[in-house]
């Protein structure tokens, strides 16, 4: 059974980028928590702030121009934002690790896989080189890379895309992290390989019990692996609920848009529905709801009032005036 105390809690996270043309509020008030063994999905379009959220947790925001201006990231009760860079280096790769979107570019092309893998182990674990090498072989086996011992001597370009992502995963799991942040781990892969990687992550999570933060723009991935989901738009969470109830009963008009833009095998329509318009300029957000200019259901007050996130059902939170209205209606 899952432990109910969250291992990672993000509270009121605000990460802004200070550019000459203005302040980009890339992450603007994100809250979530994740329990050991749980998978939390963070979904949104490009530029919605999901990757920046992940990088903020790891404290890997390039600064300048980026800065975490407010909030708390509690890992096992301790605020990571208050840690020194040196303390963070001990956490990165050991207690919280990360895998990235493009396994083609995320591995160093001029170092062997072995070198890249054992340097993580040597950095964090009290092992000598040959022990670290043995551990690397174990990890390669764990993620299902055949002929693991020989393959360690290879360079990244000698692996296929899917195999490279397996190497990335093996590297991330080297020190048995408690949280794995997966930033679009399947986006750059073929569909069949995508399924294999997701299956692998699922299997590893069951074996190792880590929590996974799965960042994706693909609702299919969410359906496959996530327990709970946070939908982000323009740096803010707009809907936060259990994965099942998101699919069964999506509440936010943006989530409806996302759902409609998934191609369905049963549908006879030739043209995919898209959400009209483009994500807003984060330097100059509209006064009211950020989504209002693209929202088919926008009301007059949506353009002036920025809604707060409200609980509409048990463990289902939405940031939309439609529901604030209904609540008001219900309460009057």
């Amino acid at each position: 059974m899952k432990d109910e105390t969250p291992i990672l809690q993000v509270k009121q996270l605000h990460t802004h980028f200070f550019s000459k043309s203005g302040v980009v509020k890339a992450v603007d008030g994100v809250n979530f928590d994740i329990k050991p063994g749980e998978t939390l999905g963070i979904v949104g379009e490009s530029g919605s702030g999901k990757s920046i959220t992940a990088m903020s947790i790891m404290r890997l925001i390039p600064s300048p121009p980026g800065k975490i201006v407010n909030g708390e990231v509690l890992f096992k009760g301790e605020d990571l934002l208050k840690k020194s860079e040196k303390q963070m280096r001990k956490i990165r790769g050991k207690e919280i690790s990360m895998i990235f979107q493009d396994p083609m570019t995320s591995l160093n092309p001029v170092l062997t896989v072995e070198k890249q893998m054992i340097e993580t182990i040597l950095t964090h674990e009290n092992m000598n080189k040959s022990q670290a090498r043995e551990r690397a072989v174990e990890l390669m086996d764990l993620v299902g890379i055949p002929e693991s011992r020989n393959r360690l001597k290879n360079y990244p370009h000698e692996f296929s895309g899917g195999m490279r992502q397996r190497v990335m995963i093996a590297m991330a799991l080297a020190c048995n992290p408690e949280v794995l942040i997966a930033d679009e781990p399947t986006t750059a892969l073929d569909v069949t390989i995508q399924a294999q990687i997701l299956e692998l992550l699922n299997k590893l999570q069951k074996e190792l019990g880590m929590a996974i933060v799965m960042i994706t723009h693909d609702l299919g991935v969410v359906a496959e692996v996530c327990d709970r989901v946070m939908v982000m738009y323009a740096g803010k969470p707009v809907e936060f609920t259990e994965a099942n109830s998101l699919f069964a009963n999506p509440k936010h008009p943006y989530t409806w848009g996302l759902m409609n833009s998934i191609p369905k095998i049963t549908s006879k329509k030739e043209k995919l529905e898209a959400i009209e318009g483009a994500p807003p300029d984060l330097r100059a957000l509209p006064q009211g709801c950020s989504f209002a200019p693209r929202c088919k259901h926008a009301m007059e007050q949506c353009l002036t009032i920025d809604p707060s996130i409200t609980k509409v059902e048990e463990s289902h939170h939405v940031r939309c005036l439609l529901y604030e209205e209904t609540e008001k209606v219900i309460s009057t």
Partner: peptide, 13 residues
């Protein structure tokens, strides 16, 4: 490059 970000995320010195 991305692999430098990876190296940072691994907590390397």
């Amino acid at each position: 490059q991305d692999y430098i970000r990876t190296a940072n995320a691994k907590g390397l010195a």
